[in-house]
Amino acid sequence: MSGNLYEVISAVGEMIIGNRQKLTDLDAAIGDGDHGINMARGFEAVKAKLQGMEMESDIGKVLKIVGMTLISSVGGAAGPLYGTAFLRAAAPSQGKTELDTQTIGLMLEAAIAGIKERGKATTGEKTMLDALVPAYEAFQDGANTGKTVTACLELAYEAAQQGVEFTKTIIATKGRASYLGERSRGHQDPGATSSYIMLKALVEYLRR
């Protein structure tokens, strides 16, 4: 992978690993308290898997490895969900060594479709989709008005942040948190938060 691609994925992984405790605490409040541990374990495995592949430049190929690794190492529901998302995003980026807004739009669209399908979920259910769908829509709005990749991702990041805030106002109807019903209100969703963290890492990397 080119230096950049490797660095981007490392940056995302490090930020997830750095937020292990925060994600776990959020999940302990309304779930089974393993989201941070699971996600960190997944990205530790990704880090190990990508070692020795620093020169691989095919973005689709690398995302496929990331997806497969998350599926086999995360352990919780986030494994198949994020794993499927990365695998789906790998298709439009197959054979590409750099990305434009059109391709990233297709990648986000495919990733979200994968999560919806795998989780049989939609927005408003207090899941990662409440961060990712607004992020995708904001990204597309930026792309349609001719903004740069970085500018579009910044819009997506802001929308994801608002999406995380929105999850505090609703009750969970999917996943372990749905057992809590009304008691899940007031808490932000850990899955939406991990999605937001990934976008944050991406934007911070691009701003450097």
């Binding site: 393993d34 086999s72 352990g75 494994g79």
Partner: peptide
Amino acid sequence: GMADGGIGTDAFR
């Protein structure tokens, strides 16, 4: 469980 014996599920297993 997971390949490392931890709690979780693994689609490949």
